[in-house]
């Protein structure tokens, strides 16, 4: 049996993959038992993988091997400190869980200085861009000739839009004083409009990413699974069409017979 599985791993992978894909897509008809079963399988597999990954990638190399194989006994304090988390289940000892949670809050706070200096701060000066158009020229910086690229009229205009956008969006989030007056209120309002471009772009990009996954799933069923399981992609396409037809039949004919909730 084990040899059979090893020899036919790819076939098992294809069938398992196709069953999982179709099982979850059964949700597109309506909430059903098959979907719920595969949903729980997904939850179990993800949880199991997370636990195994934490052991294989983190705890085994960083804690177990140094402590058990290299004899560094003091690494026991890592897991003792980590076990403090589990006191959260005890009413009396829940304060012990706060020690380790507080420690990591402190670590995150300490790292916030470095994060701010390395990630956020450099973005502030780089948001100031040249606004006056100029031809390409060279300037001396620390005794070296440095080329300054040409800035066209449209480039200068774009730089202006960039700076105005940064300023207005920041102004929208500025709550240290009441947003009154034409300048403050107007720039905050413009900031809100400009943020809508961002949210629209994020929304569009999200839909495109999900649709790319959907196309990938169809590609898997038609071009990977279909030819190996049924001989050709066309056959798989016909089976998928038949399944969609069945779903349509169930949706249009069978559901008409059952009264809607609240109508009975």
């Amino acid at each position: 049996m084990s040899e059979y599985i090893v020899r036919h791993t790819d076939v098992f992978m294809l069938w398992v993959g196709a069953l999982c894909t179709l099982g979850l897509y059964s949700m597109l008809y309506k909430e059903n038992r098959i979907y719920r079963l595969f949903e729980h399988l997904f939850l179990g597999l993800s949880t199991g993988y997370l636990v195994a990954q934490q052991w294989v990638d983190v705890l085994q190399p960083k804690w177990w091997k140094p402590m058990w194989e290299e004899g560094r006994w003091h690494f026991i304090f890592i897991v003792i400190f980590g076990s403090f988390y589990y006191f959260i289940f005890s009413r009396k000892g829940s304060w012990i869980a706060r020690i380790v949670i507080g420690f990591f809050l402190g670590v995150a706070s300490g790292q916030a200085f470095q994060l701010f200096a390395n990630d956020t701060w450099p973005q502030i000066p780089s948001s100031f861009k040249p606004l006056i158009p100029h031809p390409a020229h060279t300037v001396m910086v620390d005794g070296k000739e440095t080329l300054i690229k040409e800035l066209t009229n449209s480039g200068a205009l774009n730089n202006g839009i960039f700076m105005i956008t940064v300023f207005c969006v920041m102004m929208y989030f500025f709550f240290s004083f009441e947003q009154k007056g034409l300048f403050v209120k107007g720039s905050a309002k413009l900031g809100r409009w400009l943020m809508m471009f961002t949210f629209g772009a994020i929304f569009g990009a999200t839909i495109m990413a999900r649709l790319a996954l959907l196309i990938d799933r169809m590609d898997f069923l038609l071009n990977e699974f279909g030819p190996k399981a049924f001989g050709s992609a066309q056959m798989m396409f016909a089976i998928l069409l038949a399944m969609m037809g069945l779903v349509l039949y169930l949706a249009l004919v069978k559901d008409k017979k059952t009264p809607e909730e609240g109508e009975a």
């Binding site: 992978m13 069938w15 993800s46 996954l213």
Partner: peptide
Amino acid sequence: EGALQNLDATMFSIIA
């Protein structure tokens, strides 16, 4: 590769 990755991709494609 067979189960988890396919379930993951399918679940997120349903979001579309």
